[in-house]
Design a binder for these strands. Sequence first.
RNA 1: GCGGCCAUAGCUCAGUUGGUUAGAGCACUAGAUUGUGAUUCUAGGGGUCGCGGGUUCGAAUCCCGUUGGCCGCCCCA
Length: 439
Amino acid sequence: MAQFQSLPGFREFYPDALARRNHIFRLWRQTANTFGFQEYDAPVLEPLELYKTKSGDEIEAQLFSFTDKGGREVALRPEMTPTVCRLVGEKASSLKRPIKWFSIAEFYRYERMQKGRGRCFFQLNADIFGEPGVEAETELIAMLVQCFAGFGLTAEDFYIRLSDRNLWFYYLEALGLDEVRVRGILSAVDRFEKLGDDAFKDYVTQFGALDEWVKAKVLAFLQIKSLAALEAVVAGIPGDKLTARLADWRKLLGNLAAMGLGGFVEVDLGVVRGLAYYTGFVFEAFDRKGELRALAGGGRYDSLVGKLGYGEMPAVGFGVGDMTFALLLEQRGLTPAFVPTTDIYVVIGGEAERAAAFGDIFALRAAGFRVEYPLKDVAFGKQFKMAAESGAKLALIYGGDELAKGVVKIRVLGDRSEHEVPRDQVALAVRDFFAGGAE
RNA sequence: GCGGCCAUAGCUCAGUUGGUUAGAGCACUAGAUUGUGAUUCUAGGGGUCGCGGGUUCGAAUCCCGUUGGCCGCCCCA
């Protein structure tokens, strides 16, 4: 025993755990369908270069990567975005716009195990390609809300923080910073919530001290938590880029409010997201209590498809991981109890009766009923206990007495009532019962 | 990559200053019960005490190493 363990950070799903996972996936899939998204899938193993192209060599350390037997540098996928960009890029000219796609897939990252984080995990990924306007953000944020709300989670349980990398760019440009410095500031903003003032250390070592008045402006901007506050700040700055961008903000927030989702979304310019490929609106979902890591993250990445060598293609997307989400459901008591599901339990008297029952068991199963029976001869009393434990609604009794009379006894396990039906009418009686009949 | 805590049955855990054949509850299997469901009683299976080495007459217990887990940092896709 204990000779073989699963690899560190990898997960095994026993039936009860898989039932919980499937429950989550089922509702996610259903929500995606109601929002008009189509499901796709793609390889788990990809060329290493696909991820280097997107995020740089340093990410290689966090990949499960190796050289295959053909000498190719390959990696287990750590995320879906580059892959889906390739899928869309390849067929861009023949795909009907807007392209609304989703997937539920497993990903791998060579990292230290922590709460809500493992070396393998599942993500729902949803993306819209080909729509440059905030209509795409509207769809995705609305769907993200429903992917949570569908489980009974409310605005008391989670919220979405909405920010905008464009707005940051325009604002910092207006303050006189060039693009390289802007990126440095954004990375500091990203870490400010956790590190406080230390977040600016990297910037200072790279570009030298930051003017106090610029820093003050940055700190004021990242603390903006409402559209009104944003409008007030922008009003004092010349140039029409910022004002034009504010129109997008009003439209997006207006759309979400019209859908009744105002309570789920909060303006929060302190979010910029670390990923280099985001270009516009970005958003992250968190639990209200602030106890868990981010539940979901997403945003616009208009230049990634082009960077991978295809034609320019506007894109927005988000990902939700299964681990932190499952923790939230558990914390709020929203994980349903999964009981074994059987429709019919067949009670069998002995070997002779077994042969008679088998034909009906197979026919009922072929008709779509979930039928169980004891694999070996067991005392009657025991069989009724098993029938009750199986969760079955009906027991069919194939005993010596019944067979002699040419009938099968049907017991309704809920109210313990019993009646006999001729053997050739068993299927009919069963169908009537499950059709909601008065049996 | 760095730091703290931990590892005994499928699960939750006892196990005395080191001392005979390592225990309990839950779960599982069977019997009491040869044609009717909760409870109860009885019995059973399941452990090289994470692994390796050391100290000792003797190690689950003490020491070293290692692997794995939890938590935090770093990083976040």
